[in-house]
Design a protein around this nucleic acid. Structure first.
Lengths: 222, 222
DNA sequence: CTGACCCCATGCGGATCATCGTCGTGGAGG
DNA sequence: CCTCCACGACGATGATCCGCATGGGGTCAG
């Protein structure tokens, strides 16, 4: 997830980028409004300081909103209800008055990103359905269909399958699967996961591209 | 667009409802947490005061988030970065510290609704009447008709049926149904839901495509 | 007051499922 | 080529989940 930080002050910008990078975001900084408008097309979220040198922050926002629905979090030194309301009216999703402590900023960004993700399910990935080869996985309905015939999976089997199917091509460690499905670390090498995987391979046929990564975990091949 | 205002203080609640009603929202107020959890099913947005008499506000939020992605704006008297971050982490979309001036509240609510509405094009299909096979469900009138003959359902049975009928083809977890119908998490493994389901299957005939998803919940087949 | 109805708590039985132990196997490294 | 060890296979067992039946408490209408 990439954040565009639009901020003219170098020191403030660095602090913001550091904070967000530490929280796991991919940051890019723009010092000027026109740069920001160009960069926005690659952004998943925009952090906008209203005090820009080359253009008014609210104009920036209104211009941006004519072209994009990207989530925008406004950061400003201008307190007061009037400015607050104007900022939100101009299209901001959130409006923070400086000074803002780092944990609050991160929490606000995360909350906004969470909402935006829910709001606009990425058009590339069908949210509810994962298809893989002759396999169709409906997450919402919790059903699996292989070559047109429904396959009856237990709750645990489905959980494990989802775990690896959500990251196709990536190896998923046994530990990760254990955490997600059983909600705890693997207490000693348990055979339960092996059993579930065996059951999946048996039910879904040997052509299921679920390979084991020896000494690590499993991977669903592309 | 309907807002559920969860607020125990009568005076504050009245002020909030007046403010939002003047801004053009359809408001409904709940004084208690369990009422709020039940009411959320009809809400487009929730305004939550963290100071509830019968349960902790953050618990309310976390419980709610297990069953719904409805936008939640938190209103609180507890200032401080810690509470702020905790509130957002628990699932709030916004976090306002009292006192909040009416214009700011309205602008915040509008901003959140604007962001979330992109998210929810689905409820746009006004579910006034749900038809399913030989079954007709009138939500407003709270009546069910099967093959032309009216079926007398109790309030609880109808609530449970609506829960699964609103998401046809999707599996609905047992806990979700519990939250929406009884307004609380499943206290230990209760057989009440089984009873209601059995009653529904008995009254609506065995052809009711309500299948149980073992280890998860129920699903109304398409 | 009385009766009917609804709803929920509890118990039981059947079916399913997860877990564990054991043994076999195949790959990696020396 | 040999050894080690992680993983796969399989059956037995204990736990879990669901459906159904029963009884008591509460509510409302007559």
């Amino acid at each position: 997830m990439r954040i565009i930080v639009v901020e003219d002050d170098d020191g403030v910008a660095e602090a913001l980028v550091d904070t967000l990078t530490d929280a796991g975001w991919d940051c890019r900084r723009c010092a000027r409004g026109d740069d920001g408008l160009r960069a926005v097309r690659d952004a998943d979220l925009v952090l906008l300081d209203l005090g820009l040198p080359d253009m008014d922050g609210l104009d920036f926002l209104r211009t941006l909103r004519r072209a994009s629905e990207v989530p925008v979090l406004v950061l400003t030194a201008r307190d007061g209800d009037g400015a607050h309301v104007l900022g939100l009216r101009a299209g901001a999703d959130d409006y923070l008055v400086k000074p803002v402590r780092a944990p609050v900023l991160v929490a606000r960004v995360q909350a906004l990103a969470r909402r935006a993700r829910v709001a606009a399910p990425t058009p590339g990935a069908a949210p509810g359905v994962l298809t893989w080869g002759g396999l169709r996985l409906d997450v919402a309905a919790r059903t699996a269909v292989r070559d047109g015939t429904p396959v009856d999976l237990t709750a645990t089997e489905l959980e494990v399958l989802l775990c690896v199917a959500e990251r196709p091509g990536e190896a998923v460690s046994r530990e990760t699967v254990h955490l997600r499905v059983w909600g705890g670390p693997d207490p000693g090498r348990s055979r339960s996961l092996d059993f579930i995987v065996a059951s999946l391979r048996h039910k879904l046929g040997p052509d299921l591209p679920l390979t084991t990564v020896r000494g690590f975990g499993y991977r669903l091949e592309t």
